[in-house]
Design a protein around this nucleic acid. Sequence first.
DNA 1: CCAATAGTGAAGTAACTACTTCACTATTGG
DNA 2: CCAATAGTGAAGTAGTTACTTCACTATTGG
Lengths: 110, 110
Amino acid sequence: MKDSERIIDRLFHALGDPTRRAILDRLTQAPTSVSRLAAPLGITLTAVAQHLQVLEESRLVRTEKVGRVRTCRIEPAGFSVLEKWTRDHRSTWERRLERLGDLLAEEDEG
Amino acid sequence: MKDSERIIDRLFHALGDPTRRAILDRLTQAPTSVSRLAAPLGITLTAVAQHLQVLEESRLVRTEKVGRVRTCRIEPAGFSVLEKWTRDHRSTWERRLERLGDLLAEEDEG
DNA sequence: CCAATAGTGAAGTAACTACTTCACTATTGG
DNA sequence: CCAATAGTGAAGTAGTTACTTCACTATTGG
């Protein structure tokens, strides 16, 4: 598998979990600690830490430990990968749809 | 979990597999049969059929069986869901980045 | 100083995923 | 007609994932 493929793989995998998307939504409001993230999720600190590792690997989140507190924040890098993928593929689908439109037009004419 | 959440879940899960993305790429060229999809993938027909089920459920692919042949084609519905999700969330991240920019500006001034 | 707080690491588990094989049905070209 | 073709269904498997518990190491406020 290509390198870029592995990145996309991790990204979609990271986004494919509702708990991780909830974490992202939370972090969109403001940076926060692991415990504060865990509180409303109804799962253990450990589980949240594991999700955060996945999110960090896909560059959707960046964390930094100061003292005993690890602060988590949104990292836009992962999101730009998603945007680029979507943009790249959209043009292809649009082209396909245009072609479909052309075919239908030809059918109408014929 | 909300209904829309389950849709997003399925979508990201579907896109999170390289074989399924390969199938999508192939279908972008032209509609084709299950066997033709399987040929270059090096996995069994059955496996491809299983992937197709996932892709259909996430509305990225539509299939139709005529005679003994099932023809598969791109279905844009799933993609628009992805686009909408990306668009909705991008604005939030951009806002966050602007705020970050503002904070940095304030720091510079202060 | 020290009890409470914040997080880490390792190991286990139940459920899920991406496959496989094999037996089977339906369709069709020659 | 009938052998080859196209796909389906069920059941099994190896690996992964999303958790858990428990024991542990900082760090810090009072």
